[in-house]
Write a protein that binds this DNA or RNA. Sequence first.
DNA 1: ATGGCTGTTTTTGTATACGATTCTGCATCA
DNA 2: TGATGCAGAATCGTATACAAAAACAGCCAT
Lengths: 233, 233
Amino acid sequence: MREDNGQTDRTTAIRNGIVAAILEHRVQPGTKLGEDELGSIYGASRTIVRAALQALAHEGIVVIEKNRGAFIARPGPAEAREVFEARTLIEPAIAARAASRAADPAVIAEWAPRLRAHLDEERAALARGDDRAAIRLSGEYHMLIARMAAHSIYEAILGELIARSSLIILLYKSRRAHFCGTDHHAVLADAILAGDGPGAGRLMVEHLVEIEHGLDLGEPAALGASLSEALRG
Amino acid sequence: MREDNGQTDRTTAIRNGIVAAILEHRVQPGTKLGEDELGSIYGASRTIVRAALQALAHEGIVVIEKNRGAFIARPGPAEAREVFEARTLIEPAIAARAASRAADPAVIAEWAPRLRAHLDEERAALARGDDRAAIRLSGEYHMLIARMAAHSIYEAILGELIARSSLIILLYKSRRAHFCGTDHHAVLADAILAGDGPGAGRLMVEHLVEIEHGLDLGEPAALGASLSEALRG
DNA sequence: ATGGCTGTTTTTGTATACGATTCTGCATCA
DNA sequence: TGATGCAGAATCGTATACAAAAACAGCCAT
């Protein structure tokens, strides 16, 4: 009953802040994350900031170059394909697992409202044209399903993959944003809540394939900052 | 042409040292990893040790308790099942991918000798009764296939899962060690090198199922040190 | 003996200091 | 004009200092 960890410790807070910025596309791949800079933003010493950056580097969404600093990762096309291949393998399994948990009425009682509420939020963000919220919610929906699946390892892996996906979409989206259509998400929720594991898995694959099709993974990773660094190595 | 990173940086060296100890079953789950202690072993300051421990914590093979220190993780039965479920999902995909790469003769030329050499090493370790080497090599064989599959994300994920598996096997192995039989590994190599993706995937699943069957995941996580800590929380 | 209290010791959490490396702007020279 | 080199500034890598928390040991009271 004690307040436990009133707020998450400062390292995690910084990490979460940066991840949130990535998920909302408020920061571009390649952006430098200076230690002092972050430290003054979050009112923390470099020791703390550094721990956060190392964690992010481990997750693959930040790259640390020795003696040069930390940068938001700029995944190349090959890495992008790897990320989506991994998602296409793991997420159907997660969806199927969530569906199998739906056999338990208590699980339905807990998760049906959460999924529905989230879908409403997504629709609302889309309706009001709030792209940043929409893209963030889209990723969070996938995480919600992972939490329903109650598999902490899958959940952790997917968290990293989604953050990386966010960077990839920012770099390679071909035409209109084309976020995970809320329709896809809705029918997915129906399949999961109906306990239809194979169906949910199939829908998830289709959904992911469509997202990947919305990308243009032609070889060059285009971006302003890329030139200055492309010529460095 | 410069000597680049003569040896890996010290943080990574410490991390690797601890992982190696886990992979060879030279250290028990629950063991305390004191910062000063590690520092004096590796001749590094606490700053460096701490970074290594944080990395290991992120991989899930070390647990950091606030103000108490870092300990080798002691995965419970539920977590153990999650690890093997994840492996059963990912490793067949890795094996199939490796098999598909075997269509390229250059890939065969590079990897056939490596796999065969590794199998020989495993047989030799088993023959001379060197259990520690045998269990380490057994894990390394799975990593070798992942490297052949040339998918850096799968490789990273599998690395973590294998380290955790090593702890799990140490905690829950039921009777004789029963490491991945070299026979399994050998037929797996045959399927992969023959380019038989589905077959390799199937063999991998069988292999993993057999390993998991060699465990006794009955609820209690038994171990000497466990009592003192079980009563702490 | 048992249980609780208190001062001491050990160990971790965080900030900061200092050397090393890279970056930047300006002056110099072909 | 443009390249080159060289301070000076900024930034990172690492060790260390100090504060805070936990573990420990001894002591007293029951």
